[in-house]
Write a protein that binds this DNA or RNA. Structure first.
Lengths: 101, 101
DNA sequence: CCAGCTGTGAAAATCCTGTGAACGCAGGGA
DNA sequence: TCCCTGCGTTCACAGGATTTTCACAGCTGG
């Protein structure tokens, strides 16, 4: 379970995510979220699915944790890979990880 | 309930429609409409039928929602599949989804 | 005590939806 | 031919819904 997509590498067993070989400084939650997303490339994942994988259980109906962590993750990915948008929003549904454009 | 027609794939349970494996960015309504149409290929569906499936209930007599969303859907499908017309108009009746030409 | 992580609330930004109206097009009749 | 009519297509917009981002307080480990 190791993934390389372009300049990004995700290594769950090493608790690491690398860009051009350099580790991103992600928190545990951010890394779990990135791992979860990257394990299902091009697939639209609902908030419920993401929450279940990263936090466990079901989110409160008004829980915004997933959104907040997607935002934080985007900020760090965006800093390391300017001009790329790896995580796409699907309004009313959830998020999709797209390693290639 | 999964449908593949040529380069187009409709996956209701994943809230997704793919062209060549890439998700179209459709809104919920657009996707519901595409799902409904694609579940009845080659069949002419009236506005009333489409409205009932996508919006629920009956449309006002002068409601243009179906037409507007067919137009929006065509625009996005046309962008992903140039030169193809998947949704045909049947004047005075409704619309027909035709995956093959 | 300090530094960093976490989740929550709320404001700001963005997107979706339905509606009215304008536009285009084809057919019929004068 | 020209005008009118009916119908479908598309544009524009306002209101509402959803997402993004920020700030903050609690917590933890050093």
């Amino acid at each position: 379970m190791l993934a390389r997509m372009g300049r990004l590498e995700v290594k769950p067993e090493q608790h690491a995510a690398l860009v051009d070989g350099r580790p991103l400084s992600l928190t545990v939650r951010e890394l779990q979220l990135l791992i979860t997303l990257s394990e299902h490339p091009q697939r639209i994942m609902t908030r419920e699915e993401l929450f279940a994988e990263v936090w466990g259980g079901r989110p409160r109906s008004d829980d915004r944790s997933v959104d907040v962590y997607v935002s934080r993750l985007r900020a760090k990915l965006g800093a390391a890979l300017p001009g790329r948008r790896l995580i796409h929003t699907h309004n009313g549904i959830g998020y999709r990880f797209s390693p290639e454009g």
